[in-house]
Amino acid sequence: MPRAGLNSGAVLATAVALADSDGLETLTVAKLASFLGIKAPSLYNHILSLEGLKDSLTTQGLRSLLDRSRDAMAGVAGQDALEALGHSQRSFAKEHPGLWAAAQLPVAGWSEASQTAANAYLALLLAVLRGYGVTGDAAIHAARFIRASLRGFIDLELGGGFGLPQNVDASFSTLLKMLDAGMRTLLDTSASAGPLSHAEERSKRSVLVASR
């Protein structure tokens, strides 16, 4: 019999707290059930599976990351938007490392909610790139480049990978300047390629989601 007062929202909130405090990779059904004070089989009254729970965490992680980034980017474009994106994602990852990790999981084959959130994240990156005038195939390559660069730096920092005494904030500012410079080198290529049609953009979004 389900524990009184326990529902799927409370289970998800507890999973978020455990993922943030101990790491997403440590989250198991047994651990979550123990923390909630119930037996593991009883947890399946509120979740379908561990994978389904991680799907929900991914959706929440992406939505929270999007909200933080959109707020930071409001009213700015170009380099300012890119820097706002970078700083907002880094601060989110520090505050919610478990949700950050969940937001990096592949969504191909997962719920429509996760895939919709992933497409919205891609749309945000493409909006930043339009501020530079980068469109077409160049925008897809650039979006991957930005995502890989930010994720690589943030994951290394969260994992304690920067052990030298030089200031890490200064290194991150340098990364953002290098990304900005890279976007500017794509202007001529993007201009010659022309903008994506609506059908092409939808197709390329699906390809990128499948590669996450």
Rank of each mutant, 00 (worst) to 15 (best):
R151A: 12
I47G: 00
L50D: 13
L12E: 06
Q89W: 05
L150D: 03
Q79E: 15
E201C: 06
H87V: 14
G109V: 08
R63F: 01
R70Y: 10
L65I: 06
A127T: 07
G23I: 07
V207D: 15
W100A: 02
A17F: 06
A15G: 06
D169W: 09
H141P: 02
Y44G: 08
I146A: 03
H198E: 15
V76S: 01
A74K: 04
S111K: 03
V209R: 06
R130I: 00
R202W: 07
A15E: 02
G9S: 12
K204M: 10
S206F: 12
E201V: 07
F92Q: 05
S21T: 15
G5A: 13
A210S: 15
R3I: 07
L50R: 15
L187R: 12
I38G: 00
G109C: 08
V134S: 01
T26Q: 13
D180M: 09
V168W: 07
G159D: 09
N7T: 13
M178E: 15
A170C: 13
V168P: 03
H141E: 11
R70N: 10
L158W: 03
S42Q: 14
H46I: 01
S114F: 05
D188C: 10
L122A: 10
L82D: 02
V134G: 02
L57Q: 04
A143V: 07
S88P: 03
A77L: 05
S192D: 10
A84Q: 00
A19P: 05
L105A: 10
A120K: 00
A127D: 07
H96D: 04
A113H: 06
